[in-house]
């Protein structure tokens, strides 16, 4: 059997929703009110301070909490509609949810976690094997979640969410609890997964670099309201500066525009710099 044959997913749907729900925030009662439509295969990030309603929004979409009003339509299927009082329970919404705390079943091995998720579908066995391979979990398959590192647990959680062949993927701060190198590695895994399965995805994240790397659009929430919807902000703001001195070892001493701050940077290759030359610095995170 060709390796990819078991993992072909149905064409991704268009998701269209408008959800309202009372929120209890630190600033007092507020109303979560978010309307959004996602194109097929789009990855939209949801960001904002804690208490903005990000997790609540995902829970409403998954059917884990009941909205106060609005609608959720996925393709031609109505998941929720206030007027008709239609509400699908979470079991009947084909979506994958990755929880902040991963919520892996501690009494099942990695393979059993995936098998439990895939059970009842045609081709469940090959799908589990395929996902174990895709997420480099084959070696860890007989272990229980308690014996895994945070990054490994995260990969299991992602693989398990895909084992149901979801039409929509909801990721609730999936990488927040991980150290930076692990997080960057898993961002690549997320990017690969998204490319491979083309799943329409909502990703809750605080990390501008992560959002810039993964998302097509970002929705910024604050106290339940949408502050901005648009392309992700550039993660590396540019700074203007002026060379004030040449240092030994190919370094330039640069004064940043608008202040007395001095930084030493390696001279960019390709041309010779002299004091008084202007240049633009970009700030990168290592």
């Amino acid at each position: 059997m060709p390796a990819a044959a078991c993992c072909e997913l149905p064409a991704p749907p268009v998701i269209d929703f408008h959800l309202r729900k009372a929120l209890h925030t630190a600033a007092g009662p507020r109303t979560l009110d978010v309307a959004l439509a996602l194109a097929p295969g789009e990855l939209v990030a949801v960001s904002g301070p804690s208490g903005a309603g990000k997790t609540t929004l995902l829970r409403l979409l998954a059917g884990l909490d009941r909205p106060d009003g609005g609608f959720v339509r996925v393709e031609k299927q109505v998941w929720y509609e206030q007027e008709t009082r239609r509400w699908l329970p979470p079991q009947r919404r084909p979506l994958g949810f990755v929880f902040q705390d991963y919520a892996l079943f501690p009494h099942l091995t990695v393979r059993e976690n995936l098998a439990f998720a895939a059970a009842g579908q045609p081709g469940a066995g090959p799908l589990v094997t395929e996902l174990l391979d895709a997420f480099e979990l084959a070696e860890l398959a007989p272990r229980r979640p308690g014996a895994l590192s945070g990054g490994q647990q995260q990969r299991v959680a992602l693989a398990r969410a895909l084992a149901r062949r979801p039409r929509l993927l909801l990721l609730d701060e999936p990488l927040a609890a991980l150290d930076l190198p692990t997080r960057q590695r898993l961002q690549q895994v997320l990017a690969d997964v998204h490319q491979r399965f083309g799943l329409t995805t909502l990703l809750v994240s605080h990390d501008p670099a992560e959002i810039a790397r993964l998302a097509h659009r970002v929705v910024e929430l604050d106290l339940g309201q949408v502050r901005r919807v648009g392309p992700p902000a550039l993660p590396a703001p540019a700074l203007a500066g002026r060379v004030v001195a040449l240092l030994p070892g190919g370094l330039l001493r640069v004064q940043l525009a608008g202040g007395p701050a001095l930084v030493d940077v390696p001279a960019p290759p390709g041309r010779a710099y002299a004091p008084g030359d202007a240049l633009v610095l970009t700030v990168g995170v290592q």
Binding site: P90, L95, A103, F105, R160, A161
Partner: peptide, 27 residues
């Protein structure tokens, strides 16, 4: 038993009875 365990089972399409039997009681 953490609530997210049964919620995870629900989002994986498992009924309340299956969740009780396969997730809650073993934990």
């Amino acid at each position: 038993v953490p609530r997210s365990l049964s919620e995870a089972a629900y989002t994986l399409g498992k009924s309340r009875l299956t969740t009780l039997w396969r997730v809650l009681l073993p934990n």
